[in-house]
Simulated scan of single mutants.
Amino acid sequence: MNRKHFKSIARENIRINYLPWLIVAIISIFISYQQTSNDFGHQVHFRWLHILELVFSVGLARVAIDLSLHTFEDIKSSLFWNRQWLKEICAIFLINLYAALWGILLIIPGIMKSYAYSFVPYILAEDEEISISDAIAVSQDLTEGYKWELFVLDLSFILWDILAAFTFGLAAFYSEPYKKATWAQYYLNLSR
Rank of each mutant, 00 (worst) to 15 (best):
G41E: 06
L124F: 14
Y33A: 10
R83K: 03
F56C: 10
I51R: 06
A61I: 13
F46M: 12
G103D: 03
F119R: 05
D66V: 07
S114T: 09
D66G: 08
L79P: 04
Y115G: 14
I108T: 09
S32M: 15
E149H: 12
L105Y: 04
V138N: 13
S78I: 09
F56Q: 09
N38E: 06
L52W: 11
I132N: 01
W48F: 13
D74E: 07
S77F: 00
I111M: 11
K147I: 05
F56A: 14
V44G: 13
L86H: 00
L54E: 13
G145E: 10
R47H: 08
L54F: 13
I130L: 06
L52G: 08
L106Y: 03
I123W: 12
E149G: 12
I132Y: 02
A135N: 00
L150P: 14
V55P: 14
A116L: 10
T71D: 09
D141P: 11
Y146T: 08
I27M: 11
A135I: 02
I23S: 15
L105T: 05
A99S: 08
F119H: 04
L101H: 03
I108G: 01
E126F: 00
I27A: 02
V120N: 11
I108A: 06
A25N: 04
F80A: 01
T71F: 00
L86G: 00
A61Y: 05
L97N: 05
I92Q: 05
L106S: 04
E144K: 03
Q43N: 15
V24G: 01
I107G: 07
I89A: 11
E144D: 01
W148V: 08
Y146Q: 00
D127G: 00
L150T: 13
N82C: 06
K87V: 05
L67W: 14
A135Y: 01
E73C: 11
H42N: 10
L124A: 04
R62L: 01
E128T: 10
I31A: 00
A91R: 02
W102G: 09
Y98D: 01
A91Y: 05
I130S: 10
I92F: 11
L150G: 12
W85C: 02
R83Q: 10
G110L: 05
I108L: 06
Q140F: 04
T36W: 15
Q35C: 12
C90H: 09
S57Y: 10
